[in-house]
Design a protein around this nucleic acid. Structure first.
Lengths: 204, 204
DNA sequence: ACAAAGTCATAACATTGTTATCACACCGTC
DNA sequence: GACGGTGTGATAACAATGTTATGACTTTGT
């Protein structure tokens, strides 16, 4: 992270990880969940994995490579969480379930969520590939929305743009809630439900 | 001099700043705007202000004190931007203007926005006072919404919770846009306008 | 069997936030 | 005017960070 000459390219995220690599990722994930992004130091990650710090560089190209893996893993798990809701014959109810799964992920993994959506690791910028993976999570939502559109319960429109709008709304509520912005009196779970009602009626 | 017992106690944000303090804040603000949060180091701030690093500690208690000032200043400027829109006799149009002012602020000051809403400075946590100031920005929005409610163009409801919902929606779109999350093909300005239409129809 | 190449733990380096040191200016008193 | 106390602030030191260099050990090819 010292030389900012050119965009650093980390190892491809799909490389087969050996045991040490997996150990490092697990240790980083545990550290992140337990103590937050501040605990994500190269020495602590390597120490928790029981290996030397150089493994972080030989396998991931540096700290940012590890963070990028966590970033991608987070979006994959978020996608799994949203796609694991069982579909009913009510597209609107399914959308609501999807939204609740989104919020549940953010609540269950707040520090991972902050790695994904806040710039919580200094100078970390996901690669184009990682951004594409992150963006592909939107496809799930777009499919749900398109289904609701063809069913006639939502107004017709570009599914991708509508998905971006819905995603942004859910993210906005979760983000403000996590940062405790605004008066303490605000009941954020209620705001979230209100947001989903607003989405449905606003896009009907 | 500073009580070593309680740690995160920055000087009150309303203290009268001497010339060196103002110099430091201006330098920090310029650095943040020009090179992003990574450039916000104690030495660079002091160097840009032409003073020694110790001034950061004697006047602000440390780097986080400076960041807290920027944090508060950001919300104050955001509030000014939103309250500077001239009011018409159309509460809905005024709400839209308010929303556009919000987005304009985020576009004009992206790094300041990230200090306010992302956890971009490691281990920085705004004090309760700063959070209250940040939350008070919501009051402006709540007043606009209450006006639209009494005018009958928006459904009755708790103005504060509704304001939180509207704020979260605007923040969500701006946040995802700034981080380039999602496919590149997304037209974020259009998503933002769509969001405001959704808000109006969803809350009518 | 031996040299070349790779691997990895240790140590070194630059930079960060923070704290300690210490010289010098200022101020009240004699 | 001289002197001791007070405090301000610049310099240097310290711990921790990401990263790179070094050097010993292992593996491999012939």
């Amino acid at each position: 992270m010292t030389s900012a000459t050119s965009r650093p390219h980390y190892p491809a995220p799909m490389v087969q990880l050996d045991s040490v690599g997996s150990l490092l990722l697990d240790a980083a994930s545990d550290l992140l969940a337990a103590e937050g992004p501040g605990a994500l130091t190269v020495r602590r990650i390597a120490g928790a994995a029981g290996v030397s710090t150089m493994n972080v560089y030989s396998r991931f190209g540096g700290k940012d490579g590890v963070v990028e893996h966590l970033f991608i893993e987070g979006f994959q798990r978020l996608g799994e969480g949203m796609s694991s809701v069982v579909l009913t014959d009510d597209p609107i109810a399914d959308l609501a379930s999807c939204g609740m799964a989104y919020r549940q992920f953010a609540i269950d993994h707040p520090t991972l969520y902050s790695v994904m959506f806040d710039r919580v690791v200094p100078d970390f910028q996901p690669t184009i590939d990682a951004q594409l993976i992150a963006g592909s999570t939107l496809d799930l939502l777009a499919q749900r929305l398109e289904r609701a559109m063809t069913a006639g319960v939502l107004r017709q429109g570009d599914p991708l743009h509508t998905a971006a709008l819905v995603w942004a709304t859910c993210h906005g509520v979760v983000s403000l809630e996590q940062k405790s912005v605004g008066p303490m009196a605000i009941n954020w779970p209620e705001v979230y439900e209100q947001a989903m009602r607003m989405i449905v009626t606003g896009l009907a």
